[in-house]
Amino acid sequence: MKRTLQVGLPIALAILAVGFYQAIFVAPTEATMGEVQRIFYYHVPSAIMALLFPYVNFAASAAYLLIRRSNPLRAQAADALALAAAEVTLVFASIGLATGMLWGRAAWGIWWTWDARLTSFLMLWLLYVSYLLLRRFTAGGQTQTLAAVLSVFAAIDVPIVYMSIRWWRTQHPSPVFFGGPDTGIDPHMVPAFVLNVAGWFAWGVLLVTLRYQLQRKRQRADQDATLRALESTLQSVR
């Protein structure tokens, strides 16, 4: 864990610092929205990460479901990764929702509306809240399996979130990227955007790695405790 921090933290912080400088001081002020548009450099990267890490969670959960009987020890590693990705997803989804609401109040005049994009994204957030609640508060040996099944539904919701502004009429703007003519950002805004996507991605990877390593340590500590308890019972029987 120490090495992950020593290597990962400076890299992530350096990209984020340059990204912040670009987003706040270098990128041009947008014509219709003004300074408020700069929240774009935080809202969109957070939302991208909130749609990306669910697939880490999903892949790890699927791996857990497949090998939990044949290779229980390795399955624990997959489960630790799933948990780490789920927690980081929830953080990014929360930032995406919060920045979106602030921006919406300024640019649309409303904090919230029940259009397809906002609703499906809220659903993703709720799915990960329930995922973590499920892991925290259920007892018994089925917790990891149930959580892994829940992650499948989150994985179904992600493409719906992504496509919502293409399939339906929404309050949320139609796609800025890959949106066809009359969309896109000014070339002078690209560095700020790319740096923030890269920086938040590095930050997310760092958090997932650290959380994974922590969870593995906890699992090993639990296994050791169980083993010692078993051994002491055997000795008392003898």
Binding site: E30, A31, F40, W108, D182, D186, M189
Partner: peptide
């Protein structure tokens, strides 16, 4: 409702 195109403000122009 916001457009999906972000253009820089012209220098001196009034922005929101």
């Amino acid at each position: 409702k916001c457009a999906s195109k972000y253009a820089p403000a012209k220098p001196g122009a009034q922005t929101t």
